[in-house]
Design a protein around this nucleic acid. Structure first.
Lengths: 229, 229
DNA sequence: GCTCCTAGAATTGCATACAAACTAATTTAT
DNA sequence: ATAAATTAGTTTGTATGCAATTCTAGGAGC
């Protein structure tokens, strides 16, 4: 009996949750461009549901900062304002620093080894020059550090903010130099975590996020000038 | 013409926003107790609206952690789990520390003076032994520090988490000693902000939040044992 | 007496209907 | 010809209706 329930965890999800996740993915992946109007009739057709769950999804995504609600004028995909992006990364820096500290205190050796495994997988993609694969494992590592802090509220808060930043990553490329530097920073972060060196990991994560910020901003700037041309 | 529009900025707010705010207040003030079922038919009657905007409000409050959605079984006011509360205060400590740092860098003298004014109003309530008034200005000061960090994302993130913590404050009393100590801590925080001493304000705010945590937890524990009796 | 089962009622999830607001295009007036 | 006004057509905001699920009583069986 228990076994059967385990194989079918909860196959039927609420439609509004499904809609929220689908829309979030579309926005994060840039398939719904910043500024795009979210026409309800159109989206209900494409997603195969009615307006009610769709509009519930809008409200949730608005709290995550991914869409903007214009009263009586519908919803649009929020713009990727460089200022907002900077602010988000500053906050995420503080959150990750806290996460690093807590992970040093609370993570098990097995959990650190799991992060180490992800680290090596990431290195493999870096060696192959596969940026998309690299990002995927990079993301996973940062998420795991926050997860293994053991603070569920921190994890949720971080995940919410992450959507907005991932959106930028999807568009931003990365110079070879910055990429190499980021990998070296990850080496140091893993080392600090293994040594459970709290002060060091806090400093490293703060710096890492600050660097991430400047590289994303640079790419965003390059992107906008490219579009202007 | 313009003058008339200024007196009536936008009197008609979307109903679902109004509902969200009203429900949030009810929950934060404890008038909707933790664990209480949120019957839709009942609430639509009391709030004078239909189920659609009400359910939209549920979704938003769920992202703030104030209500819990049980698929096919409705919504309940989320429990005030001591663990969750601790975690929230840890995150808020990190956020406030960042806010203090940024406020030292970015706040104008006028803004710091506004915080100073709130501080003195708070001292007045402390002198009178008026806990409710004290909390009100205490809250206002913390919010202003975050606001004057100049980071809007930080402000929003902080505000979202704050609901859950304010809820605890409404229930928690405060020992005279802890109250006096908190006031002294606020003195020091204001001094550090005035001196724009970043390292000091970060340390002070982190400690202040940590103390807040232990006092809230102590009160919560006292409350639950009182209820058990 | 207790557990299990089974209508019936209540409640939720989603779809649809209707009204208010907005958009845009044509007409009218200047 | 330009600008304001009017009106048809969308689109959104909210209410309501219907089907599916869950809850509650009451009774049958052990």
């Amino acid at each position: 009996m228990d076994a059967m329930q385990e194989v079918t965890p909860i196959p039927r999800r609420p439609l509004h949750e499904e809609a929220t996740d689908r829309l979030r993915d579309l926005i994060v992946q840039g398939r719904l461009a910043p500024g795009a109007r979210l026409n309800e009739r159109l989206l209900t057709g494409q997603l195969g549901l009615s307006r009610t769950p769709l509009r519930e999804a809008f409200k949730v995504l608005a709290t995550e900062g991914l869409v903007e609600l214009l009263p009586n004028r519908g919803a649009i995909v929020s713009q990727m304002d460089p200022v907002r992006l900077s602010e988000s990364l500053a906050v995420m820096g503080a959150l990750e620093a806290l996460a690093g500290e807590l992970a040093c205190l609370n993570a098990t050796e097995a959990q650190i080894n799991e992060i180490r495994a992800l680290h090596y997988e990431m290195l493999a993609y870096h060696a192959r020059g596969d940026l998309a694969g690299y990002f995927k494992f990079n993301q996973a590592i940062h998420l795991k550090i926050v997860k293994y802090s053991g603070n569920a509220v921190l994890f949720n808060t971080y995940r919410h903010m992450n959507g907005n930043v991932r959106r930028a990553r999807y568009m931003a490329n990365l110079s070879k130099e910055r990429w190499d530097a980021a990998v070296r920073e990850h080496d140091a972060i893993l080392a600090a975590l293994s040594a459970r060196d709290i002060e060091r990991i806090k400093a490293l994560l703060s710096d890492h996020l600050a660097h991430k910020l400047s590289s994303v901003l640079a790419e965003l700037k390059a992107l906008s000038t490219r579009q202007a041309a």
